[in-house]
């Protein structure tokens, strides 16, 4: 099995400020789903952005490699990197409202990449968009393609974005908390849809979430991120049976689906959090970064 995405010792920091990712390593196998779990602010989205080449300008890459399909993206010149990413990867974003351009009709927003990057004709791209919209079970496709984003509900928009992500047959999709912004009732449908679509298309998925319950349903393996550092990397069934890192255990205990036998919900204990933070501090001193 090949590692389609292989992040090695990626260290990011805010320019002139704190470290945001501490030598993060993470692998996604072709056709598999790798979960990336951690609380808000842990740096999950930054990892996704590093892979997709959309890091904010304020963030600086201090070291590491991001191998995508056998090429180190960080070693490529920007133009080649963009093309490479455009051909092989896509994003399912967190907020379907801001992820579609409000001033453009939905159809062209799906076909854009097919025309721009793959050089398809407009009619081919349109046909492809219709097929994909059908796969994500959107009714009245011609009307939806003519709609502006605000004319669609959140769930519909997310379906459109899923169709759009799969349209160019990327080998890897980064799904950054794809259900967080949706109604609870819609979340399950969207989750199921993403699973179904990625099986049908054989796409590898880097699934970013803060919800271990979701991970247990869709992922083959996972990395637990805490305060910018991977504290545990595990295959799926093993993690839920025998989490190793104290933070993972605490996280598991704090997840409602995995209650203790006595049914109580455990908050993540403060001493666990302190331990990880001390670890970061020592790491920083070793690496000679300002803290």
């Amino acid at each position: 099995m090949t590692q389609f995405l292989d992040i090695r010792n990626l260290t990011l920091r805010l320019r002139g400020g704190p470290i945001i990712l501490w030598s993060v390593s993470l692998r996604v196998t072709s056709g598999m789903v790798h979960g990336l779990v951690g609380e808000s602010g842990a740096g999950k989205s930054m990892i996704g952005k590093a892979v997709l080449g959309t890091l904010p300008r304020a963030i600086e890459v201090m070291g590491g490699e991001v191998w995508l399909d056998g090429v180190d993206l960080l070693a490529l010149p920007p133009r080649d990197r963009r093309r490479r990413i455009g051909e092989t990867a896509a994003l399912i974003p967190q907020d379907p409202l801001t992820a579609l351009n409000p001033s453009k009709r939905v159809g062209p927003q799906i076909t854009r990449r097919l025309i721009d990057i793959l050089g398809w004709s407009k009619s081919e791209a349109d046909q492809r968009a219709r097929t994909l919209l059908d796969e994500v079970r959107i009714p009245d496709i011609p009307r939806v393609m003519r709609s502006y984003p605000h004319e669609l509900s959140g769930g519909m928009r997310q379906r459109v974005l899923i169709a759009s992500a799969f349209a160019a047959e990327p080998k890897l999709i980064v799904a950054d908390e794809p259900t967080t912004a949706l109604d609870v009732t819609v979340q399950k449908q969207i989750l199921r849809l993403i699973s179904e679509m990625r099986i049908r298309h054989g796409t590898a998925l880097l699934f970013v979430t803060h919800d271990l319950g979701v991970v247990s349903k869709v992922c083959n393996s996972l990395s637990v991120l805490y305060a910018g550092r991977v504290v545990e990397e595990a295959q799926m069934p093993r993690f839920f049976m025998r989490p190793i890192h104290p933070y993972s255990r605490a996280l598991l205990a704090a997840t409602p689906t995995y209650l203790d036998p006595d049914g109580s919900l455990q908050p993540v204990p403060a001493n666990v959090i302190e331990d990880v933070e001390n670890e970061n501090h020592h790491h920083a001193l070793r690496a000679g970064y300002d803290v």
């Binding site: 952005k49 997709l52 080449g53 959309t54 963009r82 093309r83 990413i85 455009g86 990867a89 896509a90 994003l91 974003p93 967190q94 907020d95 801001t98 992820a99 579609l100 351009n101 409000p102 927003q109 854009r112 990449r113 721009d116 990057i117 759009s164």
Partner: peptide
């Protein structure tokens, strides 16, 4: 906004 990031990912 994410649509700007999406446009960049799309090349």
């Amino acid at each position: 906004m994410d649509y700007v990031a999406s446009a960049q990912i799309a090349g």
